[in-house]
Design a protein around this nucleic acid. Sequence first.
RNA 1: GGAGAGGUGGCGGAGCGGUUGAACGCGCCGGUCUCGAAAACCGGUAUGGCCUUCGGGUCAUCGAGGGUUCGAAUCCCUCCCUCUCCGCCA
Length: 466
Amino acid sequence: MIDLKRLREDPDRFKAGARDKNIDVDIEHVLRLDERRRQLMTEQEVRRAEQKKISKVVGPQIGRLKGLLKTAEGAARDALETEIRDLESRPVTLKNEIQAFEHEITQITPELDALLLEVPQPPDDDVPRGRSADDNVQIRTWHPDGFDPTRPFEANRGFAPKTHLDLIADLGLVDFQRAVGMSGARHYVLVGDGMRLHQAVLRYAFDRMTNEHGFTPMSVPVIVREECMVGTGFFPAGRDQAYHIEESRRGSGHDLFLTGTGEVGLMGLHQDEILDAETLPRRYATVSTCFRREAGAAGKDTAGLYRIHQFDKVEQVVICRADEAESRAWHAKMIGFVEDLLQSLELPYRLLQCCTGDLGPKNADMVDIECWMPGRGDLDAAGRPTGAYGETHSASRLYDFQCRRLKMRYRDEHGNNVFCHSLNNTVIASPRILIPILEIHQQADGTVTIPPALRPHMGGRERIGG
RNA sequence: GGAGAGGUGGCGGAGCGGUUGAACGCGCCGGUCUCGAAAACCGGUAUGGCCUUCGGGUCAUCGAGGGUUCGAAUCCCUCCCUCUCCGCCA
């Protein structure tokens, strides 16, 4: 959520931000509702103060008179009753006025609150303007010795590559048919070494984050309440993407949602808390199953392990002080952790600076990391894919947008409660990451060499197949 | 699933219709005392909104939302949550 005060002070910045993000929200209307609400509240408060003042004087008097009434009789009783009625009637006008204001305020507030949740965080000034992912800007590339993605796979390795779909089929790593039978399109069953590799990658990535980079290992819920989805900024904009468990329709409890990333659980954890500043920055890592409806992606990436409804992901989040420089430094560090990881897996990748149009409502800045996947991209003359980068990671910098929604604060050195900054980044998401691992490390004989870093998690084995 | 108990400030815990944003205790912060510390004593110690001449003023909040009332933490209704026991179960 954005800061309403800042919206009042500089509406043009927020209008431009929404425009740059291609998000349609009526900021003028927000300002009108806010203005009206503040007027009403001021008027109402003047009367409430008056009412309070009166009742502080009158209250004890009435109490005392009513006490006397219990024993009074005859004319004395009538006199007391008259006096009580007189005292009681004094604040009635005020009460009616207060109720009238209250009525109008309760009409405006839900509309204002709902609209406010839709105002996106403006992108940072150094984020390139652009309409869509096509306008993202490459920051840098990396590739291991012996595999240069600017040259065809065959030129690098001396044989024509199989796609991950071929490798999976030939090595018996995934059963799509039965999964689809059980759960529908975009589901899969990992089998044998497929499952082993999946687990190895997750465990390897998780251990690196927690053992080497000081992130606290966490397990968090993947089934959460709506507040958690709203608080972390995934709702209302991303409501279509989440699986919805309608428990309320069954008459028990409240509705729940399946989370699409471990970020929700890690950030939701401290909702409504004032964190001890000494404990910042908080660094958390989790491995969790992620659920995505992929609404609106019909027909896109329908084959294979690329776009699926359920996957597992190691996620890193950082909650730090509200300091832009610190926030930016963490962003760079978190991206560095991923680069180190991908380099240790010997996977070619590139960093993309996302443009404003690709940011999403909550980010001030986002950097995607894409791994080279030989089985993607345009087809050559022989009808074989020429390879392309595919998104495997996404690193977001949110300032206090998320923590403001979550009411996650810390007390600064002046004793003020300040909303924290938050950042999140994929560490590794599998099975999508299995695509480049299988495709890059495939051998001419159809086997796949396991990257040395993963071998300890694969029983010391060096290859799959053969 | 059945039966009960309960949700009050950082924590424990009073209050159950009238100056109660809330006694008391603990914790925490500041001070006195001390060479220093402990103890003792004194003072302070919620969050958010709005207004502000930046001194402060004011309103809201006792799980949430409605209602009754001149007045609600206190009474009524609905919902949510937590705990205990029994049953079932990974």
